[in-house]
């Protein structure tokens, strides 16, 4: 793959990214014309610049994990394009695909599951190098370097150790080191600290922040946790039922959320203090079904502000202020 067309091309660009999942086939489907597909990701546009960290925020089932997997070509989109460093990801195969894999890595959510229990830590860290055909003589140096990047050097202290002998915080840093050992330009971190206890979580978050800054890494953090996104991401996208409903610089977005969904989400987060608002949330009922594709705004059933137009007319994600986009008729 060619290295960067120019400094201004975004590193990752998705246009109209869509992923539909077919429902499991049933016998009764023979009598139905069309089976409703689940629109996990629906016409998502996003760009990530070099060195930028973006938060993808949303509740379970909103499509945030699917978006991350699409961007890494772990699954194929139903429609839409992804450009990585100016090259279409869809066409990659053979050596160019391996090259892409080296440059775009995933950090898993559950460090206890992400490592093979029968591999030593050293082998787990070297595995990506083996798989992508990196010269064997350099492995030890590169593993050592990745470990110091996550502040766990030296490799010697893990000599002969297996994952079960490490704490959760250490394991999550090993999982991060394994993603870094290939010296990627882009990482997707899917709920990177949700499995960790509070007292160790902060350490992992600090390492992630440092690594990103010092290596100039572009990162997509997938999370349901607003506080985490605020801590590590400069820009945030809010996703609801497969669509991006709001986007903006993280601090602006948290200070003045514009979409009714973002506002409800902000209000719902409890804070570790006794004096906090306990007002009813400005939201109705539960998340609707992502099956089928109803007309209009996907949030309208739960929106306390919905008007007639919301039922017919799907709001486009449009620019409302510098760097801020919202998909709502009422903003």
């Amino acid at each position: 793959m060619a290295t960067g067309l120019s400094a201004t091309t975004p590193l990752v660009e998705a246009r109209g990214l869509t992923k539909r999942f077919a429902p499991p086939a049933r016998l009764t489907d023979m009598f139905r014309k069309e089976r409703p597909h689940t629109h996990a990701v629906n016409k998502v546009d996003l760009t990530i610049s070099r060195g930028e960290s973006i938060g993808l925020l949303g509740e379970s089932g909103c499509g945030k994990t699917t978006t991350g997997r699409l961007l890494l070509k772990l699954i194929e989109p139903s429609a839409g394009d992804i450009l990585f460093d100016g090259t279409a990801v869809a066409g990659l195969a053979g050596p160019s695909l391996i090259d892409f894999r080296k440059r775009a890595q995933l950090v898993f959510q559950n460090p206890f599951d992400a490592l093979n229990p029968r591999f030593t830590i050293e082998r787990a860290l070297a595995e990506p190098l083996v798989n992508t055909g990196v010269e064997r003589a350099t492995h030890r140096d590169r593993v050592e370097k990745a470990l110091s990047q996550v502040r766990l050097p030296p490799l010697a202290r893990f000599e002969g150790l297996f994952p079960h002998q490490l704490s959760g915080g250490q394991l999550q840093r090993i999982v991060l080191a394994r993603a870094l050992v290939l010296e990627p330009d882009f990482i997707v971190a899917d709920e990177p600290v949700s499995m960790l206890d509070v007292s160790v979580r902060a350490g992992v978050l600090n390492v992630m922040r440092e690594v990103r800054a010092s290596l100039g890494l572009a990162a997509l953090y997938i999370s349901h946790d607003l506080a985490l996104v605020r801590y590590v991401c400069s820009r945030t996208l809010v996703m609801y039922l497969g669509r991006i409903v709001e986007e903006g610089p993280t601090e602006d977005l948290l200070k003045s959320p514009l979409h009714p969904y973002t506002r409800a989400l902000m209000k719902a987060v409890p804070v570790p203090r006794v004096d906090q608002s306990r007002d009813p949330l400005p939201i109705i009922g539960n998340v609707s079904d992502a099956r089928g594709q109803p007309k209009g705004c996907s949030f309208r059933d739960r929106c306390p502000l919905a008007i007639a137009r919301c039922a017919d007319d799907e709001p486009a994600l449009r620019s409302v202020a510098p760097g801020r986009r919202v998909a709502c008729h009422l903003v």
């Binding site: 979580r201 506080a227 804070v271 570790p272």
Partner: peptide
């Protein structure tokens, strides 16, 4: 208390134990 990210207060650096 230091290790906990808090939405309301200013974004302070988190300090792990």
């Amino acid at each position: 208390t230091n290790a906990f990210p808090d939405l309301d207060t200013a974004a302070h650096d988190l300090v792990p134990i």
